[in-house]
Structures are given as structure tokens and as C-alpha cells.
Design a protein around this nucleic acid. Structure first.
Lengths: 226, 226
DNA sequence: CGCATATTCTAACAACCGTTAGAGTAATAG
DNA sequence: CTATTACTCTAACGGTTGTTAGAATATGCG
């Protein structure tokens, strides 16, 4: 039990090494994608692997890393293990990293531009203003993510129609009112596809960049349940 | 110029890879230490290497990485190249990573405990309250960092006495008034040493954990100049 | 110009990481 | 009990990173 007294430099090295564990967890594209998916709610390994388009084995390995850095935690439920973010600060970290990268890295801006075919599709209004418009019923806020993600957390006044069901549930969308569609965040393609479909069918539809993680990290309120 | 249209997955991979560049830059303890030092103001390579206790060559290599991730930028002035954070969001990232690690990683908490010999040394009052106390002159806020860091940015009403000069300038510190000392942040040892010295010399002195980066990231005001 | 100083570049090696395949484990259904 | 599903562990590979030493570059001085 002879605990040798450590020098200032030795302790400092320990401290920075610990913080670097968080950075290391955030240094792999696949792990970041897993974090983004987990921002939408808890998922089992199969769902995560499917959403990130990687093998279950690889997803499992990355989740192990994220768990070791204490960014996610797992919960067994029968045959499945459901992973979730350890707390919403992790979602804030993802939002911050993404924002920093988007602002400073030209390569990312270029890749984003490849995704935006029609820039006029973008809803460029602040969160609070959208909230007011939605409350007054001036716009229809549309959540096109899978139903379980909507139930976990969604924007106030938002209506859930998962992208996969949108074509068959078009009649639920009024033709007169402008639609503002959102999905998992700026890197997600679902809202883009939804807006494409809706405008082809004669609706006035625009896309919103933020997802629930960005919304919450701005301090705006979320709703849960049906 | 035949720009092949990329699939959704290919573009997504590109996007996450770009964000991972930021994470990668933050995945090395030495780079994090360099970022923390740069939170105090711009420095040349020699100063950075000295402060982080690494070789100039290694510091240069790490700075190159940080530059590639667009977290820092360099400016030549005569023989020296001065590096600085690209903007204060980078300092916010450091503060966030540190806070997340401190909250979740038991190993870091254990290492921090090795540094705090007397927990009663800690000043446990919020920023706004300290500001009010300092304005009314009830406490002496003491910045023990090098003078150039004080000039770049310091807490309002703070007085600068660099740690190296503290012993010879003790007479500038009134015996009656409580002293609150701060330095570069929670991982920095300077304020601890200052409090040790001051209490041995009969002053009532406590340490504050935050540095200018943490202070600013809480939205509190800073002062510059002498 | 040549010399000193400050910094970067190149090359090298060991350690580490992402990925895959194959074996292993834990819970459930029959 | 066996079979199935869901996930993890182990081992192995090629590629990347941290670190160091030595050569090279840029600036300023006399």
C-alpha cells in the first residue's frame, strides 16, 4: 500500500489522459454516427448497426469503446441489449463538434452542398419563432423519423409521419398550410426526401436543419409520447 | 470534370469523417494541454513546449495536427511563430470535454483528489456572486498567471501578481481581506501553490477552480489590458 | 554574405486502431 | 435438452499515430 507521491507533472499527465479518452471516443466517424443515432433514443445493437450501415460485430466493438469512455451505457432486455447516451451532455458534445466542424472545415461545407439541391428548401427561422408559428397553427411541423424516436422526444406541436409511411398517408397533410419537416439533424437525409416528395405532390414544404439534439442544446423545450 | 454523383452513404461517410477530424485532434493528452494553454492567449512554439513540458519538435508536430483540424492558427512575427485558438468556440470545446470527463470518469476524479490536500481551500461561490463581492471590495481576486496572460484576458476586478513574483510582492496583499486566487483552470497548479504560500504567511486565501476559459464559457464578462 | 535562432520536414520504430472472421456466451423458445 | 437469436470476445491484418533524432528551411543580425 506504499502509495508513492506523484509529481505535479505525473498527475497532470493523468488528468489530460482522462479527458483524451473522451476525445478518442469522438475521433472515429462510425462512433460519431452511433452517438448521433443514440441522440434520438435508445436502440439495440442490430438497429444501430442497421442505421449506421455497418456490421453488428463492428457496431458492438465501437459501442464497447463508447462504453469505456462512459459516453453510452447498455441495458439488457431479454435477448437484446439496448444502448443509450449516458446523459444529454453527450448529445450537446455531438452538437458542438458538428457545429465546430461545419463552421471551420471547408471539406465538410463542400460535402453539405452536394446534399442541398435546392437551397430555397431550407427553413431559416429561429426556434422560438417556429414555436410561435406552430402554436398558432400557421405551419405544420412534421417529424419524419421512425415512430419510436418521435415518442422518445419531439419538437412541440410536431406531427409524426415516418418517412416510410409518408406516401400512403399523404391525405393527412393539408394542401393549404406550409409544412416544415425535420429529422435526426443536419446530416440526416430523411427530411430532404420528405420535402422532395411533398413538393412533387403539390404541397408547400421546407426542410429544417435542426434535430431534437440541436433543439434541446439551444435550451428549447421538447415533448414526449404520442 | 465528370463529377460522379455520390450515394447518400458516401456523402454521409464524408460528413462524419470531417467531424471526426475535430475529435481526432482532441484525442491526444498533449494536444489537449496545448489547447488549454492557448486558451490563455497566443504563444510561440518554445513557450508552448515549455508549458506542456515536451520537446519543441513534438510540440510542433502536435500543433501541425491542431492546425490541420482548424482548431488553431499560426502567425509569424520575426523569428517566432505565434499560435492561437481559431476562435473561442475551441475554448468552449475544451471546457466541455473537461467537464464531461470530470463528471463521468472516476479515474479523473481520483487524480483530482490527489491534488486537493485541503478541500476547505476551495472557493465554492458562483461567478455572479464573486463579481459582486469583488466589485464591493469584499474580496481580493488574484490572478497568479504570467503577466501576458493577464493582459490578454482576466476576470473583472482581478489583480495580477504572477506566482513567480508572489513571494517578493507579498506586501501588496492586505492581511485583512480574504484572497480568492485563480489560474489557468482546474488542472493548473499555480493557484494551489499561491494559496499554500499565502496561508503560510498569515493571509486568508482560497482557490477558485475556474480559469478564464470556463468563466467566458459561462457567459460571464472578462476584462483586458493592465 | 555567413551564422545563430526558431521552427518544420523526413525517416524510423514501436504502439495502437479499425476492421473482419471465427469462436464463445447469454437468454429464450420449443 | 437442443436450436435460435443477439451480442461479445479473441486473434489477426494492414494502416495510422506518437515520439525521437537528424536534416532542412526561414528569418534576423553583423
Amino acid at each position: 500500500m506504499a502509495a508513492m507521491k506523484k509529481s505535479g507533472r505525473e498527475i497532470k499527465n493523468l488528468l489530460y489522459e482522462q479527458v483524451a479518452r473522451i476525445g478518442k471516443a469522438a475521433s472515429s466517424p462510425k462512433r460519431l454516427e452511433l452517438i448521433e443515432i443514440l441522440c434520438q433514443g435508445e436502440k439495440n445493437v442490430d438497429e444501430l448497426a442497421g442505421a449506421a450501415e455497418i456490421s453488428v460485430k463492428l457496431a458492438s466493438a465501437h459501442l464497447k469503446e463508447l462504453k469505456a469512455a462512459r459516453l453510452v451505457e447498455g441495458r439488457r432486455e431479454g435477448k437484446n441489449i439496448f444502448y443509450r447516451l449516458v446523459d444529454s451532455q453527450v448529445a450537446d458534445l455531438w452538437v458542438m463538434l458538428r457545429a465546430l466542424a461545419e463552421e471551420r472545415l471547408l471539406e465538410l461545407q463542400a460535402a453539405m452542398r452536394e446534399l442541398v439541391s435546392r437551397p430555397e428548401e431550407l427553413y431559416a427561422v429561429g426556434g422560438k419563432q417556429l414555436l410561435a408559428q406552430a402554436k398558432r397553427g400557421e405551419v405544420l411541423v412534421l417529424d419524419v423519423r421512425p415512430a419510436d424516436e418521435y415518442e422518445t422526444a419531439h419538437l412541440p406541436y410536431a406531427r409524426s409521419i415516418p418517412l416510410a409511411e409518408l406516401k400512403s398517408r399523404l391525405d393527412e397533410i393539408p394542401t393549404g398550410k406550409p409544412v416544415v419537416a425535420y429529422c435526426r439533424g443536419p446530416f440526416c437525409l430523411m427530411a430532404r426526401e420528405a420535402v422532395d416528395l411533398l413538393t412533387r405532390r403539390g404541397r408547400q414544404a421546407v426542410r429544417m436543419e435542426v434535430g431534437v439534439a440541436e433543439w434541446r442544446s439551444q435550451g428549447l423545450p421538447l415533448a414526449t409520447g404520442e
